[in-house]
């Protein structure tokens, strides 16, 4: 039995982190403080010099939107996760202008173009078009992790099943061991968090297990050169555990671990922030929103995992309706459908 409030918490947490971080993305923490007058703890309309410029307060970006469409289509498929369903959802999402054309990251964009058989528009001058490089190291990015927490709900709390789901879904866009290690870490942590007896300690350990398994299974697709997600997670967890307060943890994680679109920075930062926040959903999300660089992606992953751990009550009550309205999405309906699938009420 998986508690409904955990399912909904994962969705609302993920959407909250993405939408709140949309306003701070790209900026350094110092620039966030200069522009907003301190740490950002509410929804702002994104400034005109960020990706999300033109969005309204509370609107999501690529992170949660691709997760939402994917989870929605898996629910429509009675909760069965297949490559075909994931691919269909991805292509459906890629037709939604407000999400795909404005926000899709370089790796996702390149691999969707490949799927559609069209030339990747942004990677025209990629070395890959000139010769066949042994690796595409820049594809070790966080796009495999950003979308996976809501999708991992279909594991029903089974960590190994969540890892399998992550590989199936994320290998479509990010077929390399570093990106998939990041994805499996987030998926495994989310699955663990769904269980009634879950606590932060178990969630973090499940995340480390997920990173290890993701690296092993991902290597079957391709092994890029690059730093290890698991080892950097250990570093980030140590920073989160030993920092004297949240403020110090955010700065130290940003300067030492990093918070860029690289999977081996963003996913470790997620685990460091969750530990520093002592597992508190909103404190963790605020950490992601204010760490700088790829803030929305980090905050959506933190929100997805901790929302599942602590339930929807750990988020401001108004967020659900507000996010549904701003984005024209149905989080409550999706949560109910997942609840039916997981708890046999269908």
């Amino acid at each position: 039995m998986i508690a409904y409030n955990k399912i909904l918490g994962c969705l609302v947490g993920g959407a909250t982190g993405d939408a709140m971080g949309a306003a701070t993305e790209i900026r350094s923490r110092k620039q966030i403080h200069e522009f907003f007058g301190g740490d950002v703890k509410k929804f702002y309309a994104p400034p005109k010099d960020t990706y999300a410029r033109g969005s309204k307060a509370g609107q999501i970006t690529d992170d949660f939107s691709v997760a939402y469409v994917t989870a929605r289509r898996i629910a429509d498929n009675k909760g069965v996760v297949t490559k075909a369903v994931a691919k269909k959802a991805l292509l459906e999402w890629s037709e939604v202008d407000k999400w795909f054309s404005r926000f899709a990251g370089p790796t996702t964009r390149a691999n969707i173009a490949k799927m559609k058989g069209t030339a990747p528009d942004v990677n025209k001058f990629d070395p890959a078009n000139l010769f066949t490089p042994v690796n595409m190291n820049a594809q070790s990015s966080n796009g495999a992790g950003m979308k996976i927490a809501p999708v991992a709900l279909f594991s029903g709390g089974d960590v190994d099943k969540a890892i399998k789901i992550a590989i199936t879904v994320a290998s479509l866009t990010h077929p390399n061991q570093i990106a998939l290690a990041g994805s499996c870490a987030v998926a495994a942590a989310t699955a663990c968090a769904m269980n009634d007896d879950a606590d932060l300690f178990k969630v973090v350990q499940a995340g480390l297990y997920g990173a290890r398994e993701g690296e092993r299974l991902g290597a079957k697709y391709h092994e890029n050169a690059g730093a290890s997600v698991e080892e950097r997670m250990k570093l980030a967890i140590w920073v989160g555990l030993t920092a004297k307060d949240m403020d110090e943890a955010i700065d130290k994680l940003g300067s030492l671990v990093g918070s860029s679109l690289a999977a081996n920075e963003a996913i470790p930062a997620v685990f460091g922030l969750m530990v520093a926040a002592k597992g508190d959903t909103m404190q963790g999300i605020y950490g992601g929103v204010n760490i700088g660089d790829d803030t929305d992606t980090i905050a959506t992953m933190v929100g997805g995992i901790l929302g599942a751990l602590n339930g929807v009550e750990s988020l401001p009550a108004k967020n659900l309706k507000f996010l549904e309205k701003q984005n024209d999405i149905e989080l409550e309906k999706l949560a109910k459908d997942i609840d039916k699938i997981l708890n046999g009420k269908a």
Partner: peptide, 29 residues
């Protein structure tokens, strides 16, 4: 350049580390 260690060993070092000059393979930059 661009390879992870295991591929350096496999493709360049005949299964081991490499310590001398070699002609770059077709898949290098």
């Amino acid at each position: 350049e661009t390879r992870p260690t295991y591929l350096i060993k496999k493709d360049i070092g005949n299964g081991d580390y490499t310590f001398d000059y070699t002609v770059p393979l077709e898949t290098t930059l």
